[in-house]
Write a protein that binds this DNA or RNA. Structure first.
Lengths: 309, 309
DNA sequence: TGAAATCCATATCTACAAAATATGTCTTCC
DNA sequence: GGAAGACATATTTTGTAGATATGGATTTCA
């Protein structure tokens, strides 16, 4: 590996451009003698005569001309490297892989954050993936993802930060023909559903939802009759629409309007809440990720104020 | 212009590759504390965290990864620049523009030198030009040429070196029907041509030849009857072949066999000699040129020994 | 759980090399 | 022919990279 000092190249460029040692020294802010000496050091290290010393100044040799071009190129590359590294650190460059669950993607907040990030850091390569919470957590751990908007995982995986951005209530999705759907009531008590068949998301796909619903029902004094489990929350709504039973989903999903499905608030079940988390590796090194986290926090704060549904 | 020292980049690469400060310090042949310090200097100058300090070593951040790639590229470029500059200086790279007169190109020595140069420095861009001596001298002066094989110019142009490589005698070219051509004599006296019509090269195209011939004739006691002047030596031979008169040319041109032309040595005219010079700018900076000059000198020395014609 | 080991950070001192100062040498120009 | 201009050389000063010694945090193993 070459041991030419960049300082020597900088000096060389100045002398080459000025074609005059004394002027170059002034431009560099040093005195003429050390510059004279350092140019000789450079020539010795290269084993090449770079200048012909004329009585009127310094003229580049052919080899010197080549070095001038190369040296400028090297500095340009160094500058762009520094700019690039700073850009990556600031989260303006680089790339970011973000995942989210289906229910998160249906929450208006998540696309809003992603859109804001794209606007703030348009030069960051951006990849998204939809998956269920456990798989997303694993993907982050395996460094296939940098971050993900998830629902509650069973456990806080080692080395991951799981930060709660928002908490929303859960609502019940009823077939339009359901007795509680026809009543223009403000909300329904959870206990009123004790006899209804339940359609829930498959526990391995959404353990947070599943466990929250089951334990809320038990708190309300019954064990729900789960007649079917689906892979996605959206699928439960299809089954509700078909009249197979009722489902409990995060409130933000009321934005999904499905023929034959009616949403109702649930009264008296304060534990029936669905948090929206952002997860990432605790030792993360991406400026882009830092930027996403900051954005998500800021937008979450804005989002808290107006009550939904 | 960036002020990142290459030493810092070298240190950075070592630490990044070892992922271990102490090992990197050993590899660099320094102690661990200064390395720790210099890495921090680099991080401060960039304003970027390059490593996450783990209990078990140093792990690159995303920005650090980018810098590693860039730094390697910068060193690669620097190395190739150094190699290129050295190659140019040694005359192994770069380019060279060489000129020669017609008579020089007909001298076996010149193509021999050029061929040897091409073999010695195949990567040097190479351009040749044939022209008369005065124009070649001007072209060198104007830096359109780096060197030229020329005949004697009128004056040593300022700033040019004109080095004599070879000196050859001059011979007379006679029409086959000429009385002196029919005699199988060893040579002819210059005075024997006093009554013949002379064909000479136009003086501005070959002042050395012209003046040498005229003054030799005057020394032999006559003023030649020049009935025609040509632009090139070769043209004079055509006219000789046509029987218009006689011509005096450098001995090496006897290699040109033309129907109807007979060559004879000239006796008793020691001043009738044609030097072959190599000319170049005295302040030259091309390694390729230095190589050509050295080659020409070496080959000229070889060439002197066997007498020609 | 406590001791040893590992690894990086901090503090202080040393030494080398880059830069400043002073002077010399060679051209050129008036 | 003397003065000015330009780079080279000699000597001293100074800034900083590196060495030494130590500290602090974490992990590993007994």
């Amino acid at each position: 590996m070459s041991s030419i000092d960049l300082r020597l190249l900088r000096y060389f460029i100045a002398v080459a451009e000025e074609a005059h040692l004394t002027k170059a020294a002034q431009r560099l802010g040093i005195q003429q003698p050390p510059l004279s000496q350092q140019i000789r050091v450079l020539e010795n290290e290269l084993g090449v005569t770079l200048f012909t010393r004329l009585p009127r100044g310094m003229a580049l040799t052919e080899a010197g001309h080549m070095l001038l071009d190369e040296a400028r190129g090297i500095f340009a590359r160094l500058d762009s490297a520094v700019a690039g590294v700073r850009g990556v650190a600031r989260g303006e460059l680089g790339h970011l892989a973000v995942g989210f669950t289906e229910s998160a993607s249906l929450h208006p907040f998540v696309p809003r954050v992603l859109r804001a990030f794209r606007e703030a850091a348009p030069d960051v390569g951006f990849a998204v993936e939809e998956n269920n919470t456990p798989d997303l957590v694993q993907a982050i751990h395996d460094k296939r993802l940098d971050a993900a908007f998830i629902r509650s995982p069973i456990s806080n995986v080692e080395g991951l930060v799981i930060e709660t951005l928002l908490v929303e209530e859960m609502i019940v999705a009823l077939p339009a023909a359901h007795r509680l759907a026809r009543a223009r009531s403000k909300g329904v008590a959870l206990a009123a559903l004790a006899q209804d068949p339940f359609i829930l998301i498959h526990r391995p796909n959404g353990p947070g939802f599943y466990d929250t619903i089951i334990s809320a029902c038990q708190a309300a004094g019954f064990c729900p009759n789960v007649i079917q489990e689906t892979h996605k929350n959206l699928s439960t709504l299809s089954l509700v629409a078909a009249g197979l039973g009722v489902s409990i989903i995060p409130a933000s999903m009321h934005h999904v309007e499905i023929e034959g499905v009616v949403y109702r608030r649930i009264c008296g079940a304060p534990a029936l809440r669905a948090p929206l988390h952002l997860a990432w590796r605790s030792v993360h090194t991406s400026g882009a990720l830092a930027r996403l986290i900051a954005l998500a926090r800021a937008l979450a704060e804005d989002y808290q104020k107006p009550a939904r549904f």
